[in-house]
Structures are given as structure tokens and as C-alpha cells.
Amino acid sequence: MQKGLKLTDILVTIIIALIFGVIYKIWGPLYGLISTFGLQAEQLIYGMWFIAATVAFLIIRKPGVAVLAEVAAAHGEFIFGGEWGVTTLIFGLGQGIAAEIVFAAFGYKRYNVLVVSLAGIASGLASIGIDFYYGYIGDLAVWNLLLLVGFRLAGSVMIAGIFAYLIVRTLEKTGVTSLVRPASNQDFKALE
């Protein structure tokens, strides 16, 4: 048994991540458009920027995949000329590590909607942490800051948590996930 991620795992993770990288890039202008409504409404869709980590982890279910996916997706967005430039990479790294910590805390053994939502929240908190330095959000009026945090975390649960879970559950029906997942105990039992 080889330790760490195999070439297949890495390639699949990065391809998934780059698909989301393209989406991340498109998400920039959309985010900008929604922000013109005011009142932090754009924060509700911020969670899309955390989805690569959770989807990739749910598909491949191995340690290290969440960080790799989020960094790769951010890198993709950066190379496609995303509006936030290098910022994306720093946020991507922070968000990926945060999601990874949640998955690690459950021993990489839980793949239910609760764990994924927690990972989404962790990514959201990481992004808020970076925003304190990057966006001076601590200097917003208190009610506005609470709105921002609330909306962003709600969006994280909705998109990076629930949507990611539902997408992967549908994807399982196509049978592709069995190509990349490690064999589970159930598989071994089925052989006996």
C-alpha cells in the first residue's frame, strides 16, 4: 500500500478543482453584481468559493484532498485572471486548511452532510479571519458585520455543505466515484 496520494488521486482532484476554478472565476463578476443590492446580500453566494474542497473530499475521501483541491481551484482562478489576483491563493490556502482540519477531526471517516457543512463553516471562518486583515471588516458597523458573518456562514452551509453533498450523492449514481475511492470494508465484505 503506497502512502499518500497516488497520481490518479492527484490528477482527479486537480481536474475537479479546475472545473470549480472556472466557476470561481465566473463567480467574481456575479458576486460583484449582487453586491450592488447592498446589505451584504452578496455574502449569501460566497460559499461557492469553498465548494471545491468539500466536493473533492466527498468524491475521493482521502487525507490531503481538501487542501489540494481548494489551492488548485484558487490557482486556476488566479491563472485565468481572476479579479482578486494573488489574494485568491491566500484565501484558498486558508479555506482549504480549515476544511481539511474538520475532515481530519473526524478521522477522514465521516462523509455525511453534517461534517461537510462543518467544513464549509470552517472555511467560512477562515475567510472571515483573513478578511479582518484584508478587508478591515472589523471596522464595519456592528450590525453590518454580524450580517456579513451570518450571511457568509449561511451561504457556506448551503452551497459548500448541502449542495456539495447532494451533487456528490447524485454523482455516485453515475458510478464514477468507485473509480477513485479507496476500497471500503463493505467492498471487502461483498467479496467474501
Partner: peptide
């Protein structure tokens, strides 16, 4: 996302 992801995963797997 489902058709895109499933096709891409198959392709990535073949390439690997």
C-alpha cells in the same frame, strides 16, 4: 455539474 464532473473524472482516471 454532474455530466461535466463525471466525464472529467473518467477522463482524468484514464489519463492517470
Amino acid at each position: 455539474s454532474i455530466p461535466l464532473l463525471s466525464q472529467s473524472i473518467r477522463r482524468a482516471h484514464r489519463i492517470a
